[in-house]
Design a protein around this nucleic acid. Structure first.
Lengths: 168, 168
DNA sequence: TATTGTTATACTCTATAACTATA
DNA sequence: TATAGTTATAGAGTATAACAATA
C-alpha cells in the first residue's frame, strides 16, 4: 500500500549477498511488491485485489453462500462482511437470504458486477504482464509451474490445484 | 504470524481456477506463507527474520552505521531502532558513537552475535529446505534464477543483484 | 539548515470474541 | 447447542511526523 521506491530520493546499496542467495527471501520480497503494485493499480477502480478475488469466486460458481466464498479464498468470515458491504454499495453484488436456511446469505453478481469483473480481469492482466515483463513466455510458464508445485504443498486445498487451461 | 492451516478443522474448497492461473496470485500467497513459516520458526530463537537480516548485513560488511544497515535492507530507520534495541538487549550487537560524526552510531556484531548468526543461518537453511522440498535441486536453481530476474527489475538497487556464489 | 538516531502518534490489518437470528 | 453472519474490541505492524543532538 506504499510506494516502495518510485520516489526514493537516492539509489540504495545492494542487498547482502546472503539474502539475495535465498529463494525464500526473494519470494517474500517479490510477493510484497506484487501486492503493493496490485493495490495501487486497483485503486483507480475504487477496489482492491481482495474484492476482485471475491468477484472471481462468485463468477466461477454462482449461488454461493457468504461463508463458502470466504472458504474458497481463505479469507476470514469477518473480513468477508466488509468486502461484501463495499461491493454491495457499488451495486456489484447482491445479498439475499437463503429461504431454506434463513441464517445464510446467498451472494450473486449483478450485471454491473459482471462488467466490473471483465474490467478487473483486464486490469489484472496488465499488472501481471508488467510484473513478469523481464521474462519471456517460456520462462513465465516455467515460473508458474514451479510456483504451482510449491502451492500444492503450502496452500493445501481439497483437491490438487488444477493446472490452468491454456492461459487466456 | 498465524498458523495458516495446521489446525484448520476441515479441508477447504479449491481456489478459483482463475486465481490459480495467475502467477502473481501464487507469488503473493506463497510469499505470505513463507513469511508466516519463517516467523514461527525464528520464534524459538527469540528473534525474527528481520533481526536475522540485520545480523547478516552486519556480518557481511562490518563497521556499518545504523542508517546504512537500514538502507541495505530497505527498512525504515525508525524500525531499525527497535530491532537494534532488541539485538543489543540480547548482547548480539553493540552500538557506539562515531567519533568523527557524533550523530552516527557504529553498529558491530559481538562474538555472541556471530555465534547467533551461525545458528540462524542453519535455522534459515532448514526452513528454506522445507519450503522448497517439493522441488529437486535443478528446479530450485531454476526458480531462484527466475525470481532473481524479477528482483533485478522490481527490487532496484545500486548495482545489479549479484548471482549467489555456489550456494552453501 | 540538513542529517542521525530517537520517540510519539496515528492508521491500517488482522485476530478474537461477543452478539443475533436462525437452526 | 451449534452455525451464519454481524459487530466491536484489541493487538500487531507500519507509516508519519515531531524531536534532540550534531553537523
Amino acid at each position: 500500500m506504499t510506494v516502495t521506491d518510485a520516489e526514493t530520493p537516492r539509489r540504495l546499496p545492494p542487498f547482502p549477498e546472503e539474502l539475495v542467495a535465498s529463494t525464500a527471501f526473494l519470494l517474500k520480497r517479490l510477493g510484497f511488491v506484487a501486492k503493493e503494485q496490485a493495490f495501487d493499480a486497483y485503486e483507480s477502480a475504487g477496489l482492491g485485489p481482495y474484492h476482485h478475488a471475491v468477484l472471481i469466486a462468485l463468477g466461477e460458481n454462482s449461488h454461493e453462500t457468504q461463508g463458502a466464498v470466504a472458504d474458497a479464498l481463505g479469507y476470514d468470515r469477518g473480513q468477508m462482511v466488509g468486502l461484501l458491504d463495499e461491493l454491495e454499495e457499488q451495486g456489484l453484488v447482491e445479498r439475499k437470504r437463503d429461504p431454506s436456511d434463513r441464517r445464510r446469505h446467498i451472494v450473486k453478481l449483478t450485471p454491473e458486477g459482471k462488467r466490473m469483473l471483465v474490467r478487473l480481469r483486464a486490469l489484472s492482466k496488465r499488472i501481471e504482464d508488467e510484473f513478469l515483463a523481464p521474462l519471456d513466455e517460456e520462462e513465465r510458464g516455467q515460473l508458474h509451474a514451479l510456483l504451482l508445485r510449491l502451492a500444492e504443498h503450502h496452500l493445501p486445498r481439497r483437491g490438487p490445484l488444477v493446472l490452468p487451461p491454456a492461459r487466456r
